[in-house]
Design a protein around this nucleic acid. Structure first.
Lengths: 197, 197, 197, 197
DNA sequence: AATGAATGAGTTTTCATTCAT
DNA sequence: AATGAATGAAAACTCATTCAT
């Protein structure tokens, strides 16, 4: 990593922390600069404007988040456990990052969801969908899931991603993990009833 | 309705439109005043501050929204159709109100979720949950759903509300209704497989 | 004049003085606000942005300037004296306003001469041209100028306006009035030789 | 030319283009550096500050400009054609350099006309004046112009320079060359009437 | 009951300039 | 000889809120 990249990283990391703690609107360029131990104008040497910093932070957050989930999932030995782990890990991890989605939506800087961000989300959602798809596929091969799943693979994995996001949303909004495990367990259970053999 | 209440309504209605169109951050007191045909400072005669206006708007939105859904649901003659209608109507209605959730999350005015607002959301979610609960209960009575549903009534209805919200989120975020019906159909189908007799 | 208009005038008058004294770039919104005895943000209550204030100042300057010249001209009893007076008064008056043209050109806020300003200049130039035209016309009627002048009225009056502006430019640039009278006298003389009977 | 001088020339040439295109205020050190393919701070190795670069650019521009005009003028065989050529060439050439005068006036960097720059302009104006003077003188010798011209030589040539500058100004300001030839023709004509035999 | 007028306290952004290497 | 990195100092602009009338 070049020196430039290292400093960019430092700035982004500082910004990340601030945004997690205080939210987007409250995190000023001043704050970010201070956190990075730099002058305010130095930020503009590395980034075009505030928005570019936000984009980078969200990117970073999502990558880390997704990586964590994937790692946990691939430790499992069968597809049913993988699905369970996916749901539970995702939800648990999210609690450390409760402000992330807040950014995502709040960060509507031009009045509509900004394109860069939409792309980002699309990319991430696609990766999730692919992960789920592959689990479902492997699960059918392993005779764990009904074979009709293959015909509906696309819609089904999209649906799953959406449902899980819904449960996540509540956690972000209410910050309550009471009944969290209950809910994710039940989701898995329903799922297995629906698609499991 | 007193004259005072009428004017309050006018202000709120104008604000509602603006917020739906431009999002929270972009809607200024100036804009709201202009839309109401009043001076900016007049707003402070009717409302304590910006936040109070937001709260009122969200309240109004949610009431209307929930009312629409409930009306559609109660037109159905059996509980399976009620569930289907609940999901489909909610999603369809949401498309006119795509900014609503944006508020909900974005509206973190003091940097933490404001209590008044949290209460509001809780109230609404509870109503939804109660609606679902009662459908499920009636459905069991009518021998449409398995009886185990009664034991898990609470968690199950919460889970349903969350899942539907997840599908909604995608619609808000991507504004695509392609595959919308596919997804909601499949959700209903899965559901019936899971709890239907 | 409404109270709003009065205050606008006060702000513009203050701005005018500052800009005459310090030039455009050095005159900040802060300065203008202080001069008007108002807060900085108050300026934005009355004017959209800095540019709007500039436009107004230039407008005002030009109106005053043109008015002064016209008044002096119309005091004269024959067209030859009118032409002389036009040239001499314009040049003399300009010395109090040496920064005006500086603005005009410097104020290239969008990187090209801004449209509002171009319009303004056009309007003003046209008025000057019309003034000159009418003097020339009347002068021909009074048998003071050769009759060919009428055929070339348009180009000729434009040319005169341009030449006089050229002499003015030097005064602005060098701030020297040495030889000022010499030059304007000679211009008049040449002119009379060219068009006088 | 030493290597150092070559690089200085490259920088100045790049700066010249930028300033012609975007005007002074919009041309930043960053832009100049990029155009020269150098780092921003490198500029400070070759030049004291931004002002020094401007001075050099204006110098260069004026030299080129004046050279072009002079060359065209000396191709003519009599003084009347010389005067015509002077006016027409100057105006035509100017159109490529429309921002030049803008600099000249705009470049009031410390809020008062900077001495170095004033000298520069004086030098150039003097050269123009000398050129005109010599044409007039020769023209009298050749019996093309009236002899009174000699007595007023100084003021007269200054006046001519100023008038031509005025016509130029309009071209700069309006960017219209319609009626350009009309005007310059008429100026020549008037001139000849005034001073020609 | 209503608001015109005013602003405090931020916020982002710009850019010429410096300096260690 | 050249520059990457950094910044100070200012500038324009925003907006919820207040208050006298």
């Amino acid at each position: 990593m070049s020196k430039e990249e290292i400093i960019e990283q430092e700035i982004i990391n500082g910004a990340k922390k601030l945004m997690q703690q205080y939210g987007l609107k409250k995190t000023t360029m001043e704050d970010i600069a201070k956190a990075a131990g730099k002058g305010k104008s130095t930020l503009y040497y590395y980034f075009k404007d505030k928005e570019e910093i936000f984009d980078r932070v969200i990117n970073l957050e999502m990558d880390e988040f997704f990586q964590t989930v994937k790692t946990a999932v691939y430790k499992q030995s069968n597809e049913i456990d993988m699905l369970k782990t996916y749901i539970v890990t995702k939800i648990k991890t999210l609690k450390d990052k409760a402000n992330l989605y807040r950014f995502a939506i709040e960060n509507d800087m031009q009045g509509r969801i900004n394109k860069e961000f939409a792309n980002l989300r699309n990319r991430y959602d696609n990766e999730e969908k692919k992960l789920i798809s592959s689990i479902l596929e492997k699960g059918v091969e392993a005779s764990l899931f009904k074979s009709f799943v293959l015909q509906e693979l696309d819609t089904l994995s999209e649906l799953l991603v959406s449902c899980i996001r819904g449960v996540e949303m509540d956690i972000i909004a209410y910050n309550k993990n009471r009944s969290l495990l209950d809910k994710s367990d039940m989701l898995v259970e329903m799922l297995i009833k629906g698609i499991g053999k």
